[in-house]
Write a protein that binds this DNA or RNA. Structure first.
Lengths: 162, 162
DNA sequence: TTATTTTTTGGCATAATACCAAACTTTTAG
DNA sequence: CTAAAAGTTTGGTATTATGCCAAAAAATAA
């Protein structure tokens, strides 16, 4: 936990490509070990494409891959995926503030999210009062916004770097 | 004028790559004919890289290129560049609403703008009351937000498709 | 344990960018 | 008015991110 936090500080939010972010978010919502085929079907791509991307994600420490068996998120991968999910939710919420429908917010967010820094997301999250709803997650639904990764600028001494 | 408006309707906002959008915005703010070197210096890339991108933009009708002389925006190019500039400004303003500094807003916007649709921008613009300030343009400065390209959803009969 | 299914490998392709060196043009200096 | 300098374009190559296909390998089912 304390370890995650300290690792968190190093997340810029720009380290992964769009597809990789999608895979990580998918893996997080799945929870358990996920087979190559599940991913390839979810994203409608060839299984070999998935094999290659997960190999890179595994190399970079985001997930463990047992060949022919499946993948699971590493601790770092979970932390990163949580951040990605939260970023998606914060951005989706932001768009919805300007009259976009939930679907539109989600679409626009999906195209831009990989390019928005964690610093910006944290700032926005604070500014919004650490919301728990978003275009994809409503109160009462299973997964709400997880603020663990949030760098609380307003209380630097309490949480910064820890 | 009427012609531009009708062409506008067909802009999705996603037709150009990041670099091409940057070039178009640069060309619009420059106004006159621009030489390859000016662009290559502005973006700190090799002149040959510029030659290639402008060839593609010219092919697609965004600009006229006279070899060894320079490029100018076509009418369609101007219309598109105006939209790009406005999109940048609307998005920058949006980020600034969530506590990002002007510089931060501008940075984040620069990374995401190419992936935000015109439909979303128009909606946001309406929702904001068609503002004239942004992270990059303050009131009193030369270029303010140009709303010509805006699809005014609130007054569809007056402006839609015309 | 063979047939079927799943996964991985290796090869190849495209879009977006970018660099370099060589070939051209245009401009400038004599 | 030409030769050198400066600017531009071509052609070749590279990288990153993705993705497909066919063949090989492993796992599972019959």
């Amino acid at each position: 936990m304390t370890e995650n936090k300290s690792k968190n500080v190093e997340i810029s939010g720009l380290e992964l490509s769009p597809r990789k972010v999608s895979y990580l978010k998918f893996l997080l919502t799945k929870g358990e070990t996920v087979r190559t085929t599940e991913i390839s079907e979810a994203f409608d791509v060839d299984p070999s494409t998935v094999t290659k991307l997960i190999a890179e994600l595994a190399d970079d420490g985001y997930l463990d891959h047992i060949p022919y068996r499946g993948v699971t998120l590493t601790e770092a991968g979970k932390v990163y995926a949580e951040f990605c999910l939260k970023r998606h939710q914060i951005l989706g919420l932001m768009f919805s503030h300007y009259g976009l429908t939930p679907d539109e917010s989600c679409d626009e967010t999906s195209r831009i999210e990989t390019f928005v820094s964690k610093k910006a997301v944290d700032r926005m999250c604070s500014s919004m009062g650490h919301p728990t709803i978003s275009c994809c997650v409503k109160p009462g639904e299973a997964r709400q916004i997880n603020h663990d990764s949030c760098f609380h600028e307003s209380r630097p001494n309490l949480i910064k770097k820890l």
